[in-house]
Design a protein around this nucleic acid. Structure first.
Lengths: 345, 345
DNA sequence: CTGAAAGCGCTTACAG
DNA sequence: CTGAAAGCGCTTACAG
């Protein structure tokens, strides 16, 4: 444990002033250093293995090179992908990322934002909209506002707020695209496994899918609500649909079940299997999210991949640009797999 | 955008000196402030909405409150779980985490470590051992050493290095445990889908499994090498095993295929299905990792869950403790699922 | 218990 | 082009 070498050491070693050493090493737009001195300084720095102190630089410059990222849970695959995008964009911009996880505790959100603000991060990327806990959400909004007022800038992913920009994923349009594609594959009879009847991504997906299917003149056999878009609920919902008999009634071609999340689709798949209904031979199945596992189940699951990495990267750019009020909307990407084979014409 | 309020503002507002304001707000072990003044300072801080500048504090104190985390790829589920553990442990200790991803580029490792060192992170947690790129690995080692010499402390996950502590996962022992459990379930004939013949986790798992099975007096029908422990290689390896006929020869009970990774097991499952061999009715199957998807496939996959979150948390503690030369070894956790039902008898 | 002052390691107007 | 000096916002010996 030795005393780290400072810029003063370098200046002394090179026989120049502190100012010249600083300018030679870390540049300056306005000032330039004579080639001979510059060379001497660089040589001295090399000899001494000088590395600038980032904290001191931040202090002197009045700004850090960090961007703050707030996620509800890093270990979730969705947020992991977003984090990857943020990380890539950040270090392309020469910035580091300070990660803060609320660990799905709404009350932590405001304090986490405050902490990032105190650390003077240059910009913030916030993932995940309102938690539903009004008190916590208001506190979070206040914290963001305080940060913005203090000169910070923020971008939100999957939410919106005045004074910020954001990126969002086009759930509805992507679901509509999925519906069109499935129609083109020959499917004409659909069942939807829907989320609870309230606003949110699942609702958007349902709307995009059902509206499109209807416009195309296909038939919606049933819309079965789930209490939550989980595997268990998907299983239960599918079981109810099977029991209702709507799947077996028709003669107008193979029905297709659209679940608003892959998790629900996994549950539905299990229910179908337990009922002895072969997928996709008798009933086809599609999900949404491209969760890990969608490529592993049998049959592999047709779904919509969310452009999460791109969303993270885009959010960094928006936050850095600092202009408020812009929202970038990204489309999902269709992933056609075995669970929805083309129907013979 | 207003000028942020500083401690001087608070001191002035409270009518005390800078020093007193500092001591009243951010405490001091040695100094104590009169209750009346302390109250006045706190009131002033509240009124002005003062929040200390973290950068300035770090500068003055000579150390930051950040811990640096280096991972090969944040979006990978394994590293996501580790990151979650690190994050939780960090903010339990009142520290923030600065995330750096090498994005699987070996050459980036050293530069990422240097960057973290320049930012004066208090401790570093490094995930992932040697990349195989000797030059890059040496550079990374040098960077870590430089950081340590400068007073930093680091903990490694899944690797070891003098001057650091680390946490490791007991692949071999966990695989042995898995073998014992499967034996207890009644399995006596095993096939292993092994990784390439070189040191590493897959090799440890193979060794633990095969040695235990052998000691228990069970039969190893075949050890099939894969070029890499991937889904594709697992598929190919399984196909070869099927073609070899070892699975069908016996009459001494149902064979069980152990793949050294879940990914390989997924591939094997597909190959078995294509060959018309029902799993688990005719052949049982087990993997390792508890990858996302292991709970989604049919049948759900028996595997070993890695204590990744715990590993991340443990690493933070080790790094903070600062004593070098300790390695904490964590066992995996058996996850018995449908692919390995107990055998009657 | 309280305060004036130095200092953390840089950057950057301000003068030469 | 180069340098002496102030300043970034705190903390903390050092004196009262």
């Amino acid at each position: 444990m030795v005393r780290p070498v400072t810029l003063s050491d370098v200046a002394q070693e090179a026989g120049v002033s502190l100012a010249t050493a600083s300018r030679a090493l870390n540049g300056s737009a306005t000032r330039t250093v004579g080639p001979e001195l510059a060379r001497r300084v660089r040589a001295a720095a090399e000899r001494l293995r000088y590395a600038p102190d980032g904290v001191a630089q931040a202090m002197a410059r009045g700004r850090t090179n960090a961007i703050g990222l707030v996620v509800p849970d890093v270990s979730d695959a969705l947020f992991g992908a977003i984090t990857a995008g943020v990380s890539a964009a950040a270090d392309e911009a020469g910035l580091s990322v300070t990660l803060a996880s609320t660990r799905d505790v709404p009350r932590r959100e405001a304090s986490v934002i405050d902490a990032l603000a105190r650390q003077r991060v240059r910009a913030m990327v916030l993932v995940g909209g309102p938690t539903g806990n009004v008190e916590a959400d208001v506190a979070a909004m206040r914290a963001i506002e305080a940060y913005l007022v203090g000169g910070g800038s923020a971008a939100l992913i999957g939410a919106a707020m005045p004074g910020t920009s954001g990126v969002d994923i086009a759930d509805k349009r992507s679901a509509a695209q999925l519906a069109m594609e499935l129609h083109a594959l020959g499917y004409r009879r659909f069942v939807a496994l829907a989320g609870p009847d309230r606003p949110g991504r699942p609702a958007e997906r349902l709307a995009g899918f059902v509206e499109t299917v209807t416009v195309l003149g296909a038939e919606v056999l049933a819309v079965q609500r789930m209490t939550a878009p989980t595997r268990e609920a998907g299983h239960a919902a599918m079981a109810e649909v099977i029991a209702s008999g709507v799947l077996t009634g028709g003669d107008a071609g193979r029905p297709l079940v659209f679940a608003v999340t892959d998790q629900a689709a996994f549950g539905a798949l299990a229910a179908l299997r337990q009922a002895g209904i072969p997928v996709p031979d008798q009933v086809a199945l599609a999900g949404f999210d491209d969760s890990p596992g969608a490529a592993e189940v049998t049959p592999t699951l047709t779904t919509v991949r969310l452009p999460l990495v791109a969303a993270g990267a885009e959010a960094v750019k928006l936050a850095l640009a600092g202009e408020a009020g812009r929202t970038v909307v990204l489309d999902g990407e269709l992933v056609l797999r075995e669970s929805t084979p083309p129907l013979a014409g």
